[in-house]
Amino acid sequence: MTPAHGHTPHHGGSHGHHPEHDDSGQAEILDLDAEVLAEHIASITAWLPLNSEPRQIVDLGCGTGAGTFALLERFPDAHVIAVDASAGHLQLLREKAYARGMQDRVRTVQADLDTDHWPDLGTPGLVWASASMHHMARPDRALADVHELLAPGGLFAVVELDGFPRFLPAHAPEGQPGLEERAHAATDSYHAEHVPHRGADWGPMLTAAGFTVEDERTITVNIEGNRSQAIGRYAHASLQRIRGAAAPALSPEDLVALDELLDVDSPHSILRRSDLAVRTERTVWAARRA
């Protein structure tokens, strides 16, 4: 379930375009997101209101495969076409498929989903788009393309973030409480300009594209850090990624505190904290092609 532009963390999926933003930092965040939120992703796939189990699935903006592998586990007779703009992410996905013995059930397709003509993706019974639709330059056109792609009666699952995850308690770090919120606020103007559909209500847009929205669900995530060693790495990678965009708007004191959190050798490193948690929300729209 995976995404992101090169300067901010993006969680749960990958974008469908802008291949120049492919880098190992984003792949690391996508993999950590998949590991930490595996139960939540599985709960979404189990909830989908399907009329029958799909045999053909398309994962749009698949990233490194969080959604792809959750769907393969949920639907053992299905094949997935995993689509992303990033050759690097698709290579990682293929390596995972071989490692899991699932290579015969996955086909990867490198494509820019903002182009006028999509590649042949078959006639899937389920299309999955996790944290990818808000990156589309023309989401109305992309929704129309998905509507045309789906088999009659097929389901389109749109999973979107209500916001980036938060990891630190409000009183942290010592001396600069609330730093994490200020760092995220410092990037808001950038996102408003460059990712205007982040946090959008996709229900009306899906209806306008000809879908029937059958259900909508918001999932609240609150995972205590002691449940997974990956949460510290997830928090570090996410804050490291946001630093570049946030730095110009942060006070010198905040920037020093942020760099201490990111310094793996510092006694104040975020990796040494025992009070981390993953707090976020994700909303899922299940829309059917009539």
Rank of each mutant, 00 (worst) to 15 (best):
P3A: 15
P9H: 14
H11P: 04
G13K: 02
G13F: 05
S14E: 10
G16H: 04
H21Y: 14
H21E: 14
D23T: 15
D23F: 15
D31C: 06
D31G: 11
E35T: 13
E35V: 11
L37M: 14
L37V: 07
A38V: 10
H40Y: 06
H40W: 06
H40F: 06
S43E: 14
A46I: 05
L50V: 00
S52Y: 01
E53W: 07
G61I: 03
G61W: 03
C62V: 03
C62I: 02
T68V: 11
P76T: 11
A78I: 08
I81W: 03
G88S: 15
H89E: 10
R94M: 14
R94P: 01
R94C: 08
A97P: 02
R105L: 06
R107S: 10
Q110M: 14
D114K: 12
T115S: 13
T115Y: 06
H117E: 08
D120N: 09
T123N: 08
P124E: 02
L126N: 02
S132C: 12
S132Q: 03
M133E: 00
A137E: 10
P139H: 04
P139N: 06
L143M: 11
G153C: 03
F156A: 04
F156L: 15
A157Y: 02
V158P: 01
G163E: 10
F164N: 11
P169W: 07
G175R: 01
Q176F: 05
P177N: 04
E180A: 04
H184G: 04
A186W: 08
D188V: 14
Y190D: 06
H191R: 15
H194F: 10
H194T: 10
V195K: 08
R198W: 09
G199I: 10
G199A: 06
A200S: 11
P204L: 14
P204H: 12
A208M: 10
A209V: 06
T212L: 10
T212R: 12
D215V: 00
I219C: 08
I219Q: 09
G225A: 12
Q229H: 13
Q240I: 02
A247S: 09
A249Y: 07
E253G: 08
L255E: 05
L255C: 00
D259A: 13
D259I: 13
D263S: 14
D265H: 10
I270G: 02
R272I: 07
R272A: 15
S274D: 15
L276S: 04
A277R: 15
V278Q: 07
T280S: 15
R282Y: 12
R288V: 07
R289P: 00
